[in-house]
Design a protein around this nucleic acid. Structure first.
Length: 183
DNA sequence: CTAAATACTATTG
DNA sequence: CAATAGTATTTAG
């Protein structure tokens, strides 16, 4: 399992120029996107409902399917706009088992009125479970959204020990496919 | 360049 | 409850 990462950040434009083609494939429970020099730039869990939609983040690249092996020590290279990088760095500070609202996150970034823009950046991160975007929830005990589906979000949070019993907006009966999975 | 779309939220009826 | 105005970034055209 991948515990902690120390990603390097890269401007999106520079990333497109430096790595016009990328490689993707499955390894164990992951769908991985890597550069030609073996840096991980995209990640999703295979059991997500539509894991291949991860490739939406790399539409400007030529994507080549390839045999993948994800090593414990693989370096991470995250391409994003300065704004997105700012948000993603803040996400990495949120510890396991803690949930923060989109509004709190925006406040923490000193952009209290940019809640919606911050939410967009949260959802745009390319290595979803490792950048803990699932720990961002709506105000007033609402789940908020999740690119990979709210059931997956709820499952990830429960596995971290978060009590969701008081939350609204929880889908009922849609989590069976995740019941036996280990994230 | 402009317009539309967002994983939001507080407010109003 | 639903509708909506306010808001900032990104993307599509």
């Amino acid at each position: 399992m991948i515990n902690q990462i120390n990603p390097q950040f890269f401007s999106r434009d520079a990333f497109c120029k430096a790595y016009p083609q990328l490689y993707y494939g499955m390894d164990q429970k992951w769908l991985v996107v890597m550069t030609g020099d073996d840096q991980v730039c995209g990640l999703a869990l295979k059991i997500f409902p539509h894991p291949l939609s991860l490739l939406r983040c790399f539409k400007k690249h030529t994507l080549i399917e390839k045999e993948m092996s994800l090593s414990q020590s693989a370096p991470y290279l995250l391409a994003g706009t300065p704004f997105q990088q700012h948000v993603w760095k803040a996400l990495l500070e949120i510890p396991r088992g803690i949930v923060v609202s989109y509004q709190d996150l925006a406040n923490r970034l000193h952009m209290p009125k940019a809640v919606r823009a911050v939410a967009n950046a949260v959802g745009a991160n390319p290595i979803s479970p490792l950048i803990p975007c699932h720990r961002i929830v709506g105000s007033r005990q609402h789940m908020g959204g999740y690119h990979w589906g709210v059931p997956a979000k709820a499952t990830l949070l429960r596995e971290e020990g978060v009590d969701l019993s008081s939350f609204k907006g929880l889908p009922i009966g849609l989590e069976k496919e995740y019941r036996e999975s280990t994230f």
